[in-house]
Amino acid sequence: MTARSTAREEILARMRQALDGAGAAPGSPRAYRRLLDAGTDITAMLIDRLVDYKANVHHGLAAIGAALGGAQRVVVPADLPADWRIGGAEFVPDTGLSTADLDGMDAVLTGCAAAVAVSGTIMLDTGAAQGRRAITLVPDHHVVVVRREQIVGHLAEALPMLDPTAPQTWISGPSATSDIELQRVEGVHGPRRLDVVLLDD
């Protein structure tokens, strides 16, 4: 037997022995919420939570240019809708750009897979208009477009919208740390600026 299979078999055997006589697994009570109260204005809540964690919020397609600020070179996923490329920046489609290329970008513009109102979380799963993970990580400024139907109230509603085996990034505000005296301060290694553009439909 190889060392690996020995270790595997031994650990599994230890587990089985430890559980000898442990009986059946207990049931899992799931009496928690999966939805917010009917009538909750989830868009308003999403905006409130985004702003609370220092993201900037904009409305409508036309606001993309403003959201990009003064960015000159903006990397975009190759499948980004053409009508999102608004403003005077140069939009560079990601066709396998090198890390150095990405490091030279001022911003990244993408869509998302879902947005969760209750926690102000934008979810990416590298699906349509999102691109690979590196493009939303290396540039210091991330502009993300959220369509109205992508907004849900609760985390439990968002998970089924994701591709569970695709690489995912859940983003709640710009990069931050609580490591100094347990106070949250924005801005470490991830994009230090997060702008969210909400589209009505």
Partner: peptide
């Protein structure tokens, strides 16, 4: 950290 959600969560599969 006493946050509604931490800034980043990564999920990867293989």
């Amino acid at each position: 950290t006493g946050e509604r959600m931490n800034p980043y969560t990564s999920v990867w599969t293989g």
